[in-house]
Design a protein around this nucleic acid. Sequence first.
DNA 1: GGCTGGCACGTACACCGTACGTACGTCAAT
DNA 2: ATTGACGTACGTACGGTGTACGTGCCAGCC
Lengths: 216, 216
Amino acid sequence: MTTEPLSRARIVTAAIDLIEREGADAVSMRRIAAELGVGVMSLYNHVPNKDALLNGVAEAVLSEIEFTDDPDDDWTDRVRTQARAFRQIAHHYPRCTMLVVSRQLSSAAGLLPVERALATLRSAGFDGPDAVRMVRLFIAFIVGSLLREVGVTPTFAPVHHRHLAGAEAVDPALFPEVSALAPLLGACDHDAEFEFGVELLIQAITVLHARKEGTH
Amino acid sequence: MTTEPLSRARIVTAAIDLIEREGADAVSMRRIAAELGVGVMSLYNHVPNKDALLNGVAEAVLSEIEFTDDPDDDWTDRVRTQARAFRQIAHHYPRCTMLVVSRQLSSAAGLLPVERALATLRSAGFDGPDAVRMVRLFIAFIVGSLLREVGVTPTFAPVHHRHLAGAEAVDPALFPEVSALAPLLGACDHDAEFEFGVELLIQAITVLHARKEGTH
DNA sequence: GGCTGGCACGTACACCGTACGTACGTCAAT
DNA sequence: ATTGACGTACGTACGGTGTACGTGCCAGCC
């Protein structure tokens, strides 16, 4: 039983495990210490405070994104691949996702995805300002999508599990469209929605690309 | 001094005020009670618990969105107007925004925007499934944008305030694009970014619209 | 008058983050 | 070999948190 020597990394992964197992609310310094079988205050030898620990969690999750896009591919394929890679975190660490997107990390951990995206767009012929705009647009879309997938933003199932009677209490004639489309709103194929969004964005920036080419 | 009679509404608005004044971390039942000049436990006569109170805050903020789009306008103009209306909450209640988007409300409070959006898209000729997809796409984009504006998602200023020396410590040759575009990443015109995104989305779904028309 | 129900409130408990002090190991210089 | 400095583990304690529970007040009704 040679307990290996407690480190920032061990603490962070313990926190991630705990979050995935019991949710972000279960995280407390005492709880993590117990999980690791150490005293509470020992943690503070490796992490300045809880906030920094949570930042560490966010960075760790973010830095696990694996970019596998092939530089020889078409730039649209590379964008697709990168977007999907980013989305993977929502599948690997669903309960951590909220934490990742809700914490502004000043560190460089989140910079790799941006670097990759910018490089791809620049190589596709976009100028600097346009590339930055695109990246911001994609990030906004991806972040918003992940929040929906993780369940914090609603899919807009209108109360949804009230399938007792056919009619819902919430949407009478006040919300005609919502109630008419309730079945569609209730079911959400996250994969399909995400792919739809990505394709639409790619298609949109493609025509923008073509238009610029024609103009210049 | 006829202190009016404590109510869920008074508690919620007190919470909103407090959040806007001192941030979400300042919220505690004791603090809100003090703010209202009442005992802590009195709050529980009107609100089941803190979580429900925060949901109340989210609902209240969300329900203050004012939709001013004219049904006679072009559907693209109505979409623009609705998107901007939604974004207004980030300006009226910047510190509450995170709370609004991060809390899944099962209530009907968030349903009005969806109803309006669906109605607009349906009247533009989209069928049910497409309309739902569009709404989800727009919401993802808007939510992601608001998170950036509110400062939780970074604008990707690379350390940004290290304008001491010209070069940054974080981006050597490892992040060539990021460092090359640092000035652009550092500055973010939220209005312009948002409008750009909205226009791009509208343009994209317009061509999708036209394509369907041609096909059917 | 007496009863009932809602509301305001105090107390108490379990838990939280963390400042501070302490004890113990290992290494360096004496 | 002794001493000292230093990094790490950890216990205690303080001020804060959400809220279960009990108590007292007062209005409305029989």
